[in-house]
Amino acid sequence: MDTADATVGPTAPLTFRAATEADVAALVALIESAYRGDAGRAGWTTEADILDGQRTDAEGVSAVVRDEDSRMMVVERGGELIACCQLENRGEHACFGMFAVRPELQGGGLGRVILAEAERLAGTEWGVGEMHMTVISVREELIAWYGRRGYARTGKMTPFPYGDPRCGVPRRPGLAFELLVKVLD
């Protein structure tokens, strides 16, 4: 298992590691808290105003943990789970997703550090030249945040899977995912 440490301001070091099956329940709870319901409103990345229902489930997270071409990265501080993200090796590029930071810790620079570590890992361990991600196109503030970190909007849209409750239950029509791309150094 790979680990790396980083410090965010005066706080304790962060530890990065690959998730195991033992982490699945805690990861699902973290992801759900960051994206759905009132708990997510403590942070700024919530999708509660545009989607109801689940963001993920144990089956989906477990599949990522078991997939040889994916890595669910666990981020801990002092042994406590505070964030996670998924990386998927697609050969020439990696895909970034399931990014969650505990809502009460959002806005303090953790996301920037975690994203940089994910990019470093994808570039050095997998040798990929680009990171790809999709973001719900109406999430302008989130897209702008990624833009400040070097991600370019491509204009390539994928329709939201209306009718598939595994992806959430839309509260409005016209949702789509936009592909964002960053060339890795």
Rank of each mutant, 00 (worst) to 15 (best):
V169R: 11
L121S: 06
T154G: 05
L110I: 04
V74P: 03
R17W: 03
R77S: 13
V169F: 06
R90P: 00
I136S: 05
W145R: 06
L51H: 03
A118R: 02
T45E: 13
E141H: 10
A152Y: 11
K182N: 01
R17K: 12
I143G: 09
T7D: 09
R112L: 11
G129W: 08
V138A: 04
D23P: 02
D5P: 00
P165T: 08
V24G: 07
A144S: 11
G123D: 06
G150S: 08
D185Q: 10
L30V: 13
A19E: 01
P165F: 01
E32D: 05
T154C: 11
D52K: 09
G147H: 09
E140F: 12
V74R: 02
W126E: 06
R36S: 09
E88P: 00
L51G: 08
V64E: 04
E178R: 00
R102C: 07
G127H: 11
S137D: 15
D57E: 04
A6E: 03
D69Q: 13
R172W: 07
L14P: 08
T124V: 14
E178T: 01
G78Q: 09
R90Y: 07
M133G: 06
R55C: 05
E130D: 10
E47P: 12
D5Y: 15
D49Q: 10
G40M: 05
L180Q: 03
M98E: 04
F177K: 08
C95P: 02
V24Y: 02
W145P: 01
L175D: 00
S137Y: 01
P161M: 01
M131T: 11
Y162K: 12
C167Q: 15
A26H: 02
F160Y: 13
Y35T: 09
G60P: 02
A116P: 10
G147E: 04
D49P: 13
A6R: 15
M157H: 15
E88A: 10
A34E: 05
L142T: 14
Y151K: 08
A18Q: 13
E119D: 06
V101M: 01
A58T: 11
R149A: 11
E88H: 13
C95W: 15
Y35E: 05
F177W: 11
A19R: 12
L27V: 08
M131R: 04
A94D: 00
R148C: 10
A100N: 02
E104I: 07
T158V: 13
D49H: 12
A100W: 05
E141A: 15
T46F: 03
A100S: 05
D5V: 14
L110G: 07
E119G: 02
N89A: 12
R17G: 03
R166A: 15
A100Q: 04
V113C: 04
M133R: 03
R166Q: 12
I50D: 10
V61L: 07
I82Y: 08
E117C: 01
T124P: 01
E21Q: 08
G127C: 00
K182F: 03
T45Q: 14
G78F: 07
S62A: 15
W145T: 08
R41W: 02
V113L: 12
E21G: 14
L121G: 01
D49L: 09
I50S: 01
I31A: 11
V101A: 03
H93P: 01
M1C: 03
L81F: 10
R153T: 06
E47C: 10
I143N: 04
